[in-house]
Design a protein around this nucleic acid. Structure first.
Length: 374
DNA sequence: CCTGTGCACAGCACGAAAAG
DNA sequence: CTTTTCGTGCTGTGCACAGG
């Protein structure tokens, strides 16, 4: 694409703009008049469309979910995106139903998920979160939630079970499990193990039975907190895990009624920074220099209407680029009150030069890999 | 890749009231 | 007192298709 502004026959300008995300910078063109107002390309004809939910996340929904995840992680701690440090500041949990789902998806979301979110907001001061609803193979609704605090599993489990039992899900579990003798329970659990069970697994089952009896089967394992310790690229992992596309035939039982995902307002307002060079070409010129610096790598992707540099802004900052990273900082201050601390960035510089800079130039073969997080 | 468009409505925020 | 529910206003997403 062309990085120079061009004047059209109708007097409007095709203006190159930059969209800056934590992980990439993309150049594209927008239509402007001479007063600096954006104009739309289209003719004002509204295309016919049916705004109906499909039950599955769309391609576009996937993209915005991924973008929300990247911005969320970056706002909690830039290191999570840049170097992988800071995992202890977030929680990635899965909420499930301990017995067969008998209510509609909307009802469960309204009565249980809504209340759960309200409570963790007040109890743990959670302000940023993203949730995604999915169905398991048997059509059981469950939720993945990414949030900005480190939560204690035990408490969260009790909380979720208490809330769930408003609809009777814990009591149903209790009724089913308290009937079982140890031998029956063991048999049931061993069915889940595909290969020959190890001693460790056998012990775990025995312990689970003991725990179940101890709490009268009223505290099922309905909460799972993902252990992120061994995950290298948290951002890519979460984005992939949460926004994974539904494969194969769109089965009716796997459809989710109503909202598929949502982010809190604090996350919703995090949008990519838009840079327009109205009077001078400072931003575009710096972007061109950036492209030059990375021209031999696979970080540059050119499409017909877009030119993308898949390098994190902070990394560009350490490379010595100033203007765009500075604007990006200002933007971050506005949308999530990041403390502007030059010393912090100087410290990061020394760390990041070692952890980020020597990264081998890996082959990015697809646009998906390059743009993950946009 | 990026944008805009418009409608319905999910669901957030917040406060207040009710329930425990 | 704390927890839960309810009411209201309003934000912003999903949807398909248009443009570059």
């Amino acid at each position: 694409m062309n990085l120079e502004p061009t004047i059209l026959d109708n007097g409007l300008i095709k203006m190159p703009c930059l969209s800056v995300s934590p992980t990439a910078i993309t150049a594209y063109t927008r239509l402007m008049d001479f007063n600096g107002n954006f104009k739309t390309w289209n003719t004002g004809i509204k295309p016919p469309c049916e705004n109906r939910e499909k039950g599955f996340i769309s391609k576009k929904g996937q993209k915005s979910l991924e973008r929300a995840i990247y911005w969320f992680l970056y706002s909690v701690d830039p290191n999570i995106v840049n170097t992988g440090k800071g995992k202890e500041k977030i929680t990635f949990l899965t909420l499930t139903l301990p017995s067969k789902q008998v209510h509609g998806d909307k009802e469960i979301k309204d009565k249980c998920l809504k209340q759960f979110l309200t409570e963790i907001r007040s109890d743990y001061k959670v302000t940023k979160f993203i949730w995604k609803a999915e169905k398991q193979a048997q059509g059981q609704l469950h939720f993945h939630i990414l949030l900005d605090k480190f939560l204690p599993v035990k408490e969260v489990k009790q909380k979720w079970n208490r809330i769930l039992n408003k609809l009777g899900y814990v009591y149903e579990y209790h009724k089913k499990m308290s009937r079982l003798e140890w031998s029956e329970y063991r048999e049931l659990r061993l069915k889940e193990v595909k290969s020959k069970p190890s001693d460790k697994q056998k012990n775990a089952i025995r312990q689970a039975f003991k725990n179940g009896v101890a709490c009268n089967w009223m505290n099922p394992n309905s909460v799972d907190i993902e252990n992120l310790r061994k995950v290298g690229n948290i951002a890519a992992y979460c984005a992939k895990y949460m926004s994974k596309e539904h494969k194969g035939v769109a089965k009716e039982v796997l459809k989710v009624e109503g909202r598929i995902w949502f982010s809190s307002q604090a996350v919703s307002k995090m949008k990519n920074l838009l840079l327009v060079s109205a009077d001078d070409q400072t931003y575009i010129e710096e972007f061109a220099q950036m492209l030059k610096a990375y021209q031999t790598t696979s970080k540059v992707y050119e499409a017909e209407h877009a030119l993308m540099l898949g390098v994190p802004v902070d990394q560009l900052r350490y490379k010595g680029f100033k203007t765009i990273p500075y604007e990006f900082d200002e933007h971050c201050n506005e949308i999530f009150n990041r403390e502007r601390n030059i010393k912090l960035f100087e410290q990061q510089k020394t760390i990041s030069v070692q952890t980020v800079a020597p990264a081998p130039v890996e082959l990015v073969s697809t646009i998906e890999q390059l743009t993950l997080g946009l």
